[in-house]
Design a binder for these strands. Structure first.
Lengths: 337, 337
DNA sequence: GCTTGTGATGTAATCGATAACATGCATGGA
DNA sequence: TCCATGCATGTTATCGATTACATCACAAGC
């Protein structure tokens, strides 16, 4: 494989000149430039990344930690992030953590090894190996949380107003006459879940039905949605509406209803969360709270890049993006009993 | 940030000893080892990746190029790849190409810059910057194709028997009495599409209905499935069955049918391809050809790792994995006309 | 007592680029 | 004519690890 020295020798110049041709072409005589370029092409030379990175102390890489890349919500966020990174000359290191702390730690270490310049994480756990770094540099740390934010983390973050979004969804159900509403929420430990539950309770309190809420916790997957919905439907007093904290869980809930011969939305209304692209292709099409998934990824990268531009202090430590309640066919008036 | 020199100084040893403590602990006196480890912990030292990589000429990174990460088929393959890579101590660089040649070229260049040790690509174009490399090293090149294989590429590959899989699907439809079968195929230029079409034609020829096949080409997305299906359904003689080359297109086709008040499978049968996790949660559940998505990713990484172990010649240049026809509710007997 | 072998550790070259600083040459103004 | 200036290019230290080789101490064998 060609090195800068080989190029320099063949072109009869010094390595510095070759380096300049690539980084600051205007500082090199056109004649020399042409000659060097010709050699570069002939040898198929490409600057060694490790050497460059060692010298400049920058990698132009970003680790993105997601709990599960096969979940289209995360995949969409990732896609937005990839777009924004690509434009800025950065590339992404994929960290599919499967929600396992040891994997999270492993990917977080890439920051310490200077294997990447920054880290974006979707999820609520900040690996402990980074707490030292965060303690020292605070909001200046090259770390951005997306979606599942809690102020205790002490890092920048990009998310929607989860409380408000949940309130919106519950208000829709209330306006349709539903009083017995079940929640298929996320993991109890997640700040995001807590935020949404607060929003739900707020709406329910105002309507005076807070004591009739039934709260269950799942892990956002289709299967957990099916299981939770099955439990709820088989209980003595089944809910007339289910608000699921992910579209995947809503898809599982729909399946559970179908299994029992229940017709959605006549017998039961279902609301999802995220608006992944399969939501509107469910039968009936799923009512859901849309999150701007691509934008979340794009803005997370933008925020991180601001932090990376040395001394770059962002205007704000967090960014709240707009959500949108999309009403489709899976919600309807509460059935009379 | 701590360097190996700082650790060495604090521990009162040489840098070589520190390096040995990390790489070959058994070659260091237990006493010294303990002392060095203590300093490492105290300083939070982690070996600089660029320096290590420059010295060893290995990065333990693999670029994975996919046309669209938000497509769950690719996401699942990626997940399998991530798993296998992680176990072997490798990490993945995400290359979402959006099917754009210039992006493919950009990610392929990472190989030349030694930014990654190997490349896995899903798609059928091998970027031209790599043709030189492939010409020189042939099947030894650290490059593996997944899914969309053509022998002209001259690189290793992992895929299912696409011709056979397509034959299986068409035979199912034929056995149910369908004679007017439409195809929602992939891009014409893709070898994978050609393979599957060959399989389709084979089955149709045997049954004597080859001349009644209607072939359309899409890009695997839901929207293109909808558009193609709409065109077919609005034609004078609509098909009684549609075989889609991706589940996404099948989901779009289902939506197009619903729009027109057609009941699947009574009025029309639909077969997908891939068996992404949304397939069985369609209404009706989708009959489809299952590809072992995770396994494809796992085996692609395994094959690549074999190539990377220097001089490692794999037993075979390609690996054919099993597919499976999953019959669900979206297929039924052909309607009498 | 001397040689040889072995194990623990140190010294220093090396990987391949970048960039600060040095050099040398041409130009222009006094 | 001389010197200051600026431009093109070269020289070399540096980034932070790994590792071949050198060194040293000590034990075993003759």
């Amino acid at each position: 494989m060609a090195t800068i020295k080989m190029v320099a020798d063949h072109a009869g110049v010094s390595t510095a000149t070759v380096s300049r041709v690539l980084s600051y072409p205007e500082r090199v005589q056109p004649e020399t430039r042409r000659k060097v370029r010709a050699v570069i092409d002939a040898l198929g030379y490409a600057p060694n990344f490790a050497a460059k990175s060692l010298r400049t102390l920058r990698t132009r890489k970003i680790v993105v930690m997601v709990p599960d890349i096969s979940n289209p919500f995360y995949a969409e966020v990732l896609r937005g992030a990839e777009d924004a990174a690509q434009v800025a000359g950065y590339s992404l290191l994929l960290g599919d953590t499967r929600d396992m702390p040891e994997r999270e730690a492993q990917y977080a270490d890439m920051l310490l090894r200077k294997e990447a310049d920054g880290l974006i994480f979707l999820g609520h756990r900040l690996p402990s190996s980074l707490t030292k770094l965060v303690a020292e540099t605070g909001f200046q740390s090259p770390i951005v949380n997306a979606c599942d934010f809690s102020s205790e983390l002490g890092v920048c973050s990009v998310h929607i107003d989860n409380a408000r979004a949940a309130t919106d969804a519950v208000q829709l159900l209330l306006s349709m006459g539903h009083r017995r509403i079940a929640l298929l929420a996320g993991p109890e430990t997640s700040p995001l879940t807590r935020e949404r539950l607060a929003g739900v309770r707020h709406a329910a309190l105002v309507a005076g039905v807070a004591d009739r809420l039934v709260i269950t916790h799942g892990d956002y997957t289709i299967l957990s949605g099916m299981a939770l919905a099955s439990g709820l439907l088989d209980a003595e007093t089944a809910p007339t509406a289910m608000f699921c904290f992910s579209d995947e869980m809503a898809i599982g809930a729909l399946a559970a209803c179908r299994e029992r011969g229940l017709v959605c939305p006549d017998d039961i209304s279902i609301v999802g969360f995220d608006d992944v692209r399969y939501a509107r292709f469910q039968n009936p099409p799923l009512t859901t709270v849309r999150q701007p998934m691509n934008l979340i990824g794009v803005e997370a990268v933008r925020l991180l890049l601001t932090l990376l531009r040395d001394g770059g202090k962002p205007e704000r430590h967090w960014l709240t993006l707009p959500h949108d309640l999309i009403v489709r066919g899976s919600t309807g008036p509460a059935p009379r009993r």
